[in-house]
Design a protein around this nucleic acid. Structure first.
Length: 274
DNA sequence: GGCTGGAGGCATATTACGTCA
DNA sequence: GGTGACGTAATATGCCTCCAG
């Protein structure tokens, strides 16, 4: 458990109303601020050493009302409040059964209820981590926004958070994770590309080795024929046509092994000689 | 102008939860 | 119903930049 958890949980549970105010500011401000504040809190907050995780149900309940009514926004109606209370009463958080039950009910309203319930659940309950599942609509809007800008500015973050009924921190986290996924995918694509490139190079290397061997063997053959009288035989080292000397050196498709044998550069195609 | 500490943002690794086969 | 794999939200941590003092 990190210090963030201490702030999001222990402060509420152990420090009473003064800490509720602190919690409110946390829920509205960026979570990163908490991260930065934690150091200063460690240094300067006189209450910090007295933090306790001892639960107080009454305090919890009062905070629930405070949070759902003030922090979560004015649009929360009684129905949602009840939903929030329902979440809090289910201390074991979102079990699969509850999710399934909501699924069975179906509909956007239920989905929103589920989301807001989970979010408030995380804020208020103090259990380590309540993972919400973004609805398709939320994900689509975030995706659209991501396509336009892969990074967030504070305005956009706030706007998206309000539009999607999420906390700015959640929007920020979504973008961070989305960037990470994009990068991971791109890395995989690059990896595949490099693999193919490697295979191609291997094939090319193999082919060149083979060609080199052929050229070496041809060189040996040529050396062998060089030991014979030059006038007796002519041969093209490329196509290995041997001429008995009836035709002159100027004849086509023949090669004369004479005082200056015609060897090829390994970088030129062998057939170029013919 | 250089230094320093705080704040914010991002990348990355990891954890933990939800879903599905 | 139990379980492992997978996707992903959430957390932890470190680094960088900006800015005020």
């Amino acid at each position: 458990m990190g210090l963030d958890d201490v702030h999001s949980t222990g402060l509420c549970l152990g420090l009473g109303i003064g800490c509720l105010v602190k919690q409110e500011s946390f829920s509205q401000s960026d979570h990163q601020q908490q991260k930065k504040k934690k150091k200063s809190l460690l240094k300067h907050d006189p209450f910090f050493p007295f933090l306790s995780l001892g639960s107080s149900h009454d305090m919890h309940q009062s905070f629930v009302k405070f949070d759902s009514g003030k922090v979560r926004g004015e649009s929360i109606d009684l129905h949602q409040r009840q939903a929030s209370s329902h979440c809090l009463s289910a201390v074991s958080s979102f079990s699969n059964s509850s999710v399934k039950r909501e699924r069975d009910l179906g509909g956007e309203e239920v989905e929103l209820e589920r989301v807001s319930c989970r979010v408030s659940d995380e804020d208020e309950e103090g259990s380590p981590r309540k993972k919400l599942r973004l609805s398709k609509e939320q994900a689509a809007i975030l995706e659209d926004s991501f396509k336009e800008h892969s990074t967030l500015n504070p305005k956009l973050k706030q706007a998206l958070a309000e539009q999607l009924n999420l906390r700015p921190r959640q929007v920020e986290v979504w973008f961070q994770n989305r960037r990470a996924r994009t990068k991971l995918k791109q890395t995989e694509v690059d990896c595949e590309l490099l693999k193919k490139c490697c295979e191609t190079l291997k094939e090319e290397n193999k082919r060149l080795h083979k060609e080199l061997q052929e050229l070496k063997s041809l060189k040996l053959t040529a050396s062998y024929y060089m030991q014979l009288p030059a006038a007796t035989m002519t041969m093209c080292p490329s196509c290995e046509k041997v001429d008995n000397g009836d035709e002159g050196p100027s004849a086509s498709n023949t090669f004369t092994i004479g005082q200056k044998p015609h060897f090829f550069s390994p970088f030129t195609h062998p057939s170029a000689a013919c």
